[in-house]
Amino acid sequence: MRWPWQAGRTAAPVLVDDGSLAVLASSFDPAAGEGPALAALAATGHPPGTPVLLRHLFVLAEPPDAHELPDAPEAAEASASDGAAGTSLPFWGPRRPIRPPETAREAALRAVVERDGYEVRRLGQRLAVTRQTVPTLLAVAQERARMTGLEMRLPVTYLGWQALASPPAGQEVTES
């Protein structure tokens, strides 16, 4: 049975990031907000209320520079001068932050976002987290806030987002 308010409606096509979609709008500046990018999306001729594939781009966070970590001889002198000479604990060298390998960092991101319906894939050195959505100011702002929050919890760097859809008539697909 069809509900009366659904009569005559067809389901929106499922968008797949297979290279056939064009980047119609993007925002990599959090200070600019979503308004200008969504205005650019409307200027391309994308029909309002039509879904796009929202692609969020991440880079796996880099470890701290080696020059920020103390050298072993300096650390050994510090431990010898702090009165711990009589302890039986050996000196293991400078403390280094524990950094999970790249595959573990990618797996951590996947575990968090895939359960919410996002798809994660590699684009060169970047990770693309995508989900189909109708681009409204609120929806895109919520998505950006969620991804920025992941940047705070996981060892990743959030770059920004892109809206992908079928190119409007007369435009060619741009390399994304």
Score class of each variant (00 low, 15 high):
residue 136 T to A: 08
residue 152 M to C: 06
residue 140 V to Q: 11
residue 40 A to E: 15
residue 36 P to H: 05
residue 41 L to K: 07
residue 119 E to I: 06
residue 74 E to S: 15
residue 175 E to M: 04
residue 41 L to N: 04
residue 115 R to D: 09
residue 59 V to S: 11
residue 58 F to N: 06
residue 109 L to K: 07
residue 118 Y to N: 03
residue 114 E to M: 12
residue 59 V to P: 01
residue 121 R to F: 08
residue 67 H to R: 14
residue 161 W to A: 10
residue 129 V to P: 05
residue 172 E to W: 05
residue 134 V to S: 04
residue 38 L to Y: 10
residue 32 A to P: 01
residue 161 W to G: 04
residue 153 R to I: 01
residue 60 L to C: 00
residue 139 A to S: 14
residue 94 P to M: 01
residue 153 R to L: 14
residue 87 T to K: 10
residue 97 P to Q: 05
residue 9 R to N: 08
residue 24 L to D: 10
residue 77 E to H: 12
residue 137 L to S: 11
residue 173 V to M: 07
residue 176 S to D: 09
residue 139 A to Y: 05
residue 140 V to M: 06
residue 176 S to F: 11
residue 90 P to H: 02
residue 21 L to D: 12
residue 48 P to E: 06
residue 129 V to C: 05
residue 54 L to D: 03
residue 95 R to V: 04
residue 144 R to H: 11
residue 152 M to D: 14
residue 86 G to V: 07
residue 93 G to E: 00
residue 127 L to Q: 12
residue 104 A to I: 06
residue 15 L to M: 05
residue 110 R to A: 15
residue 40 A to I: 03
residue 28 F to A: 12
residue 47 P to W: 02
residue 1 M to W: 12
residue 35 G to V: 13
residue 136 T to H: 09
residue 112 V to T: 11
residue 45 G to R: 02
residue 164 L to H: 13
residue 148 T to Q: 13
residue 45 G to T: 07
residue 57 L to A: 13
residue 88 S to H: 10
residue 137 L to I: 04
residue 91 F to C: 03
residue 116 D to R: 14
residue 144 R to N: 09
residue 37 A to C: 03
residue 82 D to Q: 12
residue 155 P to D: 15
residue 154 L to W: 06
residue 148 T to C: 02
residue 80 A to M: 13
residue 138 L to Y: 08
residue 52 V to F: 02
residue 157 T to A: 09
residue 115 R to N: 07
residue 136 T to F: 07
residue 35 G to M: 04
residue 47 P to D: 01
residue 81 S to G: 13
residue 122 R to K: 11
residue 127 L to H: 10
residue 155 P to A: 13
residue 128 A to N: 06
residue 174 T to I: 10
residue 109 L to C: 09
residue 62 E to Q: 12
residue 30 P to C: 03
residue 109 L to M: 08
residue 93 G to L: 00
residue 107 A to K: 12
residue 2 R to C: 07
residue 28 F to T: 13
residue 15 L to K: 08
residue 170 G to V: 12
residue 96 R to M: 00
residue 112 V to F: 08
residue 147 M to S: 01
residue 28 F to C: 05
residue 52 V to H: 02
residue 86 G to D: 15
residue 34 E to Y: 01
residue 154 L to D: 09
residue 151 E to L: 02
residue 98 I to K: 09
residue 99 R to E: 14
residue 137 L to Y: 03
residue 5 W to R: 13
residue 135 P to K: 03
residue 173 V to D: 06
residue 159 L to E: 14
residue 168 P to H: 07
residue 54 L to T: 01
residue 139 A to G: 14
residue 88 S to W: 09
residue 75 A to V: 10
residue 32 A to C: 02
residue 130 T to F: 02
residue 106 E to A: 15
residue 29 D to N: 15
residue 80 A to L: 15
residue 16 V to G: 04
residue 27 S to W: 04
residue 160 G to C: 03
residue 149 G to T: 03
residue 31 A to N: 06
residue 41 L to E: 08
residue 7 A to Q: 13
residue 75 A to G: 08
residue 115 R to Y: 02
residue 167 P to E: 09
residue 30 P to G: 05
residue 104 A to Y: 02
residue 51 P to A: 02
residue 154 L to F: 08
residue 73 P to V: 04
residue 103 T to Q: 13
